[in-house]
Simulated assay, not measured.
Amino acid sequence: MRPGSPGRRVGLLAAALLLAVAGCTGDPPAPGRAGERWVPRPGTAWEWQLDGRVDPRADVPVYDIDGFENSADDVRRLHREGRRVICYVNAGAWEDFRPDRDAFPEAVRGRANGWAGERWLDVRRLDVLRPLMERRLDMCREKGFDAVEPDLMDGYLHDTGFPLTARHQLAYNRMIARAAHERGMAVGLKNDLPQIPALVRDFDFAVNEQCAEFGECGRLVPFVRAGKAVFHVEYALAPAEFCEQSRRLGLSSMRKRLRLDAWRRPC
């Protein structure tokens, strides 16, 4: 989710080494192929770029990029360079700038969430949102992504305009996780720290913003203990202020700018 909310070609040898670090062997599998899902290991380096089409120059084994704004060719290029690729989609808010915006009934659009053109979704309405989210996951699979980062998975903690509870959020988050797994993709839990103990088995990694700034990084340790990566960013803190703790906890941490362009300062 966004902050404060309530995401060069290398040689064959280098690519193989990067895949080993990421807990992978061989070429990235075709999404949906039978067999074990990719589960990124703790400490795996990553890049997170949601501002426009991907810039492939970061020398890391995992890229997390916008599913709508990047093409199957972009994903294939990253695969050829030995990278795993995560598909960012917004699962918790309606966005007026997406091509499927008109498919979301007005009744499931709640209050503005603080970002231009976005409104919270009524995650109680699984009957309405499941097919819409499945279409987004189908898009990720068809473009060849290895995994999904569904954003805004903690609406129950915020003023959405709907009487959401932790139980509603658990049901919705598990629905998203099952739908991703049914399509052969890994799936990450975005923020939602209070429900990590209940959801760590359902998700293959975590994505977190600003846990160091808010003194919450320890709450992500269940993912690390389960052998699953925690992809973490800070916006306001300098690396010297959080990297020591990140290394101690086993997080994959870096500093990013708020707009999530290609700039990064990893630990």
Results as ranks from 00 to 15, higher is better:
A171E: 15
E149K: 15
A186S: 14
F162W: 00
G188R: 00
V108S: 03
H158T: 11
L129F: 11
V108I: 12
Y156S: 10
E106D: 15
V187G: 03
R174G: 01
D202A: 13
M175P: 00
F162R: 01
A171I: 01
F205P: 05
G110Q: 00
R167W: 08
L137C: 09
I196R: 05
A103D: 15
D159H: 10
R136K: 15
R136G: 06
V108A: 03
P99H: 12
L199D: 05
N113F: 01
R130C: 03
V148N: 08
M139T: 12
P131W: 07
L137M: 14
A177S: 14
N191Y: 03
L137W: 07
V128F: 05
H181S: 05
Q169P: 11
A171F: 01
E142M: 08
F162V: 01
Y172N: 00
D138K: 11
V200G: 04
G110F: 04
F203A: 03
A177D: 08
A103S: 15
D204T: 05
P105A: 09
M175V: 02
G114T: 13
G114R: 06
R119K: 14
G161W: 02
T165C: 02
D202G: 03
F205W: 11
L157W: 06
N173T: 13
E149T: 07
L164E: 05
V148L: 14
L164N: 04
I176F: 12
L157T: 12
E182I: 09
A103E: 14
E118K: 02
V128M: 06
T160H: 04
D151R: 01
C140A: 10
K143F: 09
L129I: 11
E149Y: 09
W115D: 06
E134I: 14
K190V: 08
A116D: 12
E106I: 11
K143Y: 08
F162L: 02
N191R: 03
R111E: 13
G110P: 00
G117Q: 06
F162Q: 00
G114W: 08
R98E: 06
Y172D: 00
A171D: 15
K190G: 07
V108T: 02
R201M: 04
M133L: 15
H181I: 09
E106W: 07
R136H: 09
M153V: 14
W115P: 00
M153N: 12
N173G: 07
F205Y: 14
A186Q: 11
G114S: 10
A107V: 13
Q195T: 12
M185Q: 10
L189R: 06
M139S: 09
E118L: 03
L199A: 05
D138Y: 09
R167D: 15
R119Y: 01
A147L: 08
P197C: 04
D146F: 11
R111S: 05
I176T: 08
P150D: 13
W120Q: 00
R135G: 10
H181E: 09
F97Q: 08
Y172H: 00
D138C: 10
G188M: 01
E149V: 08
E106Q: 15
G144D: 04
E134W: 12
Y172P: 01
R125E: 15
A112I: 02
R178E: 15
P131E: 07
A166P: 07
T165S: 14
G184M: 10
G117S: 03
L137T: 07
F205N: 04
A171H: 08
A171S: 11
R125P: 00
L193M: 07
L121Y: 02
L137I: 13
